[in-house]
Amino acid sequence: QMMAKLQPAKAAAAAGFWQSGPVPQLVLFGWPDARAHVNEGDLTINNAGGMWLHRNADGTYQGLDKYSGMLPPVALTFWSLRVAVGLGLLMLAVACVTFLWTFRRGMDPAALPPWWQRVLCGMMFSGGIAVVAGWWVSIIGLQPFVVNGTITQSEVLGSVPSSTVLYGLAGYGLLYALLLAAFAGMLFHAARYGVVPVRKLSGGAP
């Protein structure tokens, strides 16, 4: 609701709501077509989408037709939100199942069957992907503005050469790839050999 109030174009893009009007459908899935201003192959719930959208003084809900020529990338905003929410729900479900499974077996992770351990390994990067997807909704859904409805990106673009931006992006990508590889290696090592506890010696010295 806060996004709908302060950034109504982003809210409409995330909801896939094209035409302003009465209480809209809640679009669960579909493919937003920015040319035809429709959602292809959508799966909806009738009269359930109003909570996500900005409401005008006359009671109608504000759609993307009010922002002609100033639309964010609708499909990317739409699907980024669903990836973030879907992964969040999936992580919650996997965590609950894992807790119940281990709780019945004395909280021993070794009691988990091998196939479920593979599921947990597959979920290892889901948190990071969900965070990135949520960040995409926040940043990409704001386009073409930097400050919503006030300052556009074209007004604040600098004169830095594109090659400099590319080198900087490549450097960041390489750094985070190395950090991710180190993190994954640490997790796999801990999963294979266990975590060795650190014991303190007498006198308080480690």
Rank of each mutant, 00 (worst) to 15 (best):
M91S: 00
G21Q: 12
Q153H: 03
S162F: 05
H54V: 05
Y193C: 10
P114H: 14
P109Y: 10
A48W: 00
S80E: 09
G173A: 10
P114E: 15
W135T: 04
G88Q: 01
R105W: 09
C121F: 11
P73Q: 13
A170T: 00
R118Y: 06
A9P: 12
T98W: 11
L71H: 05
G49V: 01
A133P: 08
F145W: 11
T44S: 15
A170R: 01
L178F: 11
I45R: 09
I129K: 09
S159M: 07
C96D: 11
G185T: 02
A133V: 07
A11I: 03
L157K: 14
C121R: 15
G171W: 01
M91P: 02
K10T: 08
A15H: 08
A93Q: 02
P197C: 02
P144K: 01
L180I: 08
F188Q: 14
R199D: 02
I45K: 03
P32A: 15
G88I: 00
Q62A: 15
Q25A: 15
T98Y: 07
V146L: 15
V160L: 04
V85D: 04
Y167T: 04
V198G: 11
G21E: 12
L53Y: 11
S159C: 03
L43V: 10
Q25T: 14
W101P: 09
D33G: 05
P32F: 15
V83L: 03
L157T: 07
F99G: 08
C96S: 10
F188V: 14
D108S: 13
A13M: 07
F78K: 04
A110W: 13
V27I: 02
L142Y: 00
F99A: 11
L120P: 01
W79Y: 10
P32K: 15
F99Y: 13
P72Y: 04
Q19V: 15
F183S: 12
L6K: 10
L112Y: 00
F145G: 02
S162C: 06
L201C: 07
L120V: 05
D58N: 12
A34P: 09
T152P: 01
V23P: 05
E40M: 07
G134D: 02
R55A: 05
V132R: 07
T152C: 00
Q1I: 10
N46H: 00
V156P: 01
L100R: 11
V165W: 06
Q143D: 04
L175I: 02
I140R: 10
N46C: 00
H37D: 03
L87D: 03
I140G: 05
P8Y: 14
G171P: 00
G122S: 08
K66E: 15
L71Y: 04
G168S: 04
M51K: 04
A95Q: 08
L100W: 05
A9Y: 12
A12N: 13
V137K: 01
G141Y: 06
L179F: 11
E40Q: 13
G21V: 07
L120T: 07
D58H: 06
S202N: 09
F29T: 06
A13K: 08
P206V: 13
M51V: 01
G194T: 12
N148L: 05
M124P: 07
R118C: 04
R82N: 03
Q117W: 09
S80T: 03
A57I: 04
V131F: 12
V137Q: 07
T150Q: 12
G63C: 13
D33Q: 07
A57Y: 08
V132A: 15
D42F: 06
V156S: 06
P24G: 12
V147C: 03
A34T: 02
L6P: 06
G127D: 13
S202V: 10
